[in-house]
Simulated assay, not measured.
Amino acid sequence: MNSKVHGDPSEPVRVAVVQSEPCWFDVEAGVKKTCNLIAEAAEGGAKLIAFPELWIPGYPNFIWAYTPKVISEYYIKYYRNAVDIESPHMDRIRAAARKAKLMVVISIAERDRGTLYMAQIFIGPDGGILSHRRKFKPTHFERVLFGDSSGDCTNNVVQTDLGRVGGLQCFEHLQPLLKYNTYSKGEQIHVAAWPNLFPPVGKMPFFNTVDSCTWASHVYAVEGSTFVLLASHVQTEKGLRAHGFLDGDDSSERSHTAVIGGGFSEIIAPDGRTLVKSPSASYDGLIYANLDFDEIYMAKNTVDPVGHYSRPDIFQLHVNDKVNTCVVSPSQPEQVAHASRYSELKDDPAQGIVDGVAGLE
């Protein structure tokens, strides 16, 4: 790179992508592991780290395996280990980002009063919350646990010193209009947060397999002319045990989520090439790549679906990005899921946060 273009970085941006096993149903251990991975990414020279979907407290694989009666038994444990955005748990993650001087894009099960949401949080290298969005629509059985988003789902790209960073979660990559809205924001680095996924098991639909979802991520890179950081979970015997998958003897009756492995993290170039991928489905750690923005400009020179390769005289997308609330009252300001709602991160010895993260040893 020789000169700045639209304020973009003039040198390649080093990024880290997570492929690791969550700390199932354990928010304290999950926060500790998150902070350790942030520190590791910084030591590896990364300026941004991308986490999988529902990293804390782990993707609820049990929802695909059991009846509603059994799912209810897991729900309370899952709810109690979800994360409140305005909690000491999130403060510790924010403090870790600040200490590492690293941008963090993390997906969590967000607990907001009585409802859970599939949230994606963008944290700046100063620990500030740049954006807070919720999944457009929980997919299939996910609706047993999680609520819908509002207009906050469209606020998914932020301007940073690393370029314009955005993100979607899992099957949001199959939502054409949501994708197009994201492309229109000039996204350059995209975090694709996925859970653990597997080859076909039994009669499971092929579109829910690792191959299909990997293809969707590559299509996203090509359509958006953006780098895609595909982050995914791994499941070991610990995960099987946490979800009760080791209790039954009849393997033919097991869910497609009751499989060891499931990781498929990779970093994809704007022309759809794989730059780097995890060594195996069971690999647990970080993968890195250096992103050269010239690759974005070359890709967009050929196909820019929100620029020279668009036809707004024929097709236009209308977006309602307002966050609607259940009650509207002139005497009460609206409390919406927006980055401006959250206070600056401050040192608080009572919470063990002093220029970084304490209490994690």
Rank of each mutant, 00 (worst) to 15 (best):
residue 184 S to F: 12
residue 162 L to V: 00
residue 220 Y to H: 05
residue 135 K to T: 08
residue 194 W to L: 10
residue 132 H to K: 08
residue 155 N to Q: 15
residue 166 G to T: 02
residue 149 S to P: 02
residue 190 H to M: 10
residue 127 G to H: 04
residue 189 I to N: 02
residue 174 L to H: 08
residue 153 C to A: 09
residue 203 K to A: 14
residue 161 D to M: 13
residue 218 H to R: 14
residue 177 L to E: 11
residue 161 D to W: 06
residue 200 P to H: 06
residue 137 K to G: 11
residue 164 R to L: 09
residue 209 T to F: 01
residue 211 D to L: 07
residue 173 H to Q: 11
residue 196 N to L: 12
residue 172 E to A: 04
residue 172 E to C: 01
residue 137 K to R: 14
residue 185 K to Y: 04
residue 164 R to P: 00
residue 197 L to V: 04
residue 155 N to K: 12
residue 148 D to Q: 14
residue 134 R to N: 01
residue 200 P to Q: 12
residue 150 S to W: 08
residue 178 L to Q: 08
residue 187 E to K: 03
residue 207 F to V: 05
residue 128 G to F: 02
residue 153 C to S: 10
residue 197 L to Y: 03
residue 167 G to V: 00
residue 137 K to P: 01
residue 186 G to Y: 13
residue 188 Q to N: 12
residue 165 V to Y: 01
residue 207 F to I: 03
residue 200 P to W: 05
residue 199 P to D: 15
residue 146 F to D: 05
residue 157 V to Q: 03
residue 144 V to R: 13
residue 185 K to S: 06
residue 199 P to H: 11
residue 196 N to Y: 06
residue 147 G to R: 08
residue 138 P to N: 03
residue 157 V to F: 12
residue 194 W to Q: 12
residue 196 N to C: 15
residue 217 S to C: 00
residue 181 N to P: 06
residue 140 H to E: 15
residue 168 L to Y: 09
residue 155 N to C: 14
residue 128 G to Q: 15
residue 157 V to L: 05
residue 158 V to P: 03
residue 146 F to R: 14
residue 197 L to G: 00
residue 214 T to P: 00
residue 222 V to T: 05
